[in-house]
């Protein structure tokens, strides 16, 4: 099993290491194929323009998926108990995204810890395109 981090190493307001990536059209098409979201607004340029959009745009769950990496790289892939995301603004091809998680609260009960994080994804021009919250449960490591 992956070694779990020690929740005592993290204070309220501390950020986990963030994750940055740029969204390409290929990323969007790959995610459509992997996830099963074939809404033409996400892959058909002519269709997107026909409804008044400047181009196709990314599914919210694509950058919502990128953001999970911030949590699981730190806590491991099996510690996230709740992951809630709100789609605030549109992500376009070539947007540069920065994914963040900051500790909001920490409860320690015996050997188990419940940590809650505020989440956000921000673009290169400072737009907050996604907000959310996550709960992570960890077992305290013995010193």
């Amino acid at each position: 099993m992956k070694n779990l981090p020690n929740p005592n190493d993290l204070e309220i307001g501390d950020e986990l290491p963030n994750y940055k990536t740029t969204i390409s059209r290929t990323d969007i098409v790959k995610y459509a194929g992997a996830g099963g979201d074939f809404n033409p607004l996400h892959h058909d340029e002519e269709f997107a323009k026909s409804v008044g959009l400047p181009s196709i745009f990314a599914m919210g769950l694509l950058h919502g998926g990128f953001l999970t990496k911030v949590l699981t790289d730190w806590a491991g892939p099996t510690s996230v108990k709740r992951y809630k995301i709100r789609f605030i603004d549109t992500v376009w091809p070539n947007d540069e995204l920065s994914c963040h998680a900051a500790l909001k609260s920490k409860e320690i009960h015996n050997s188990r810890s419940l940590l809650s994080f505020d989440l956000s994804v921000i673009t290169q021009d400072g737009r907050r395109v996604l907000a959310g919250e996550a709960d992570i449960e960890l077992t305290l490591q013995e010193n």
């Binding site: 790959k30 995610y31 194929g33 992997a34 996830g35 694509l62 990128f66 999970t68 699981t72 892939p77």
Partner: peptide, 11 residues
Amino acid sequence: FSLALKNPDPL
């Protein structure tokens, strides 16, 4: 799915 999210973690 994991690779589409740019996450190559072998887990």
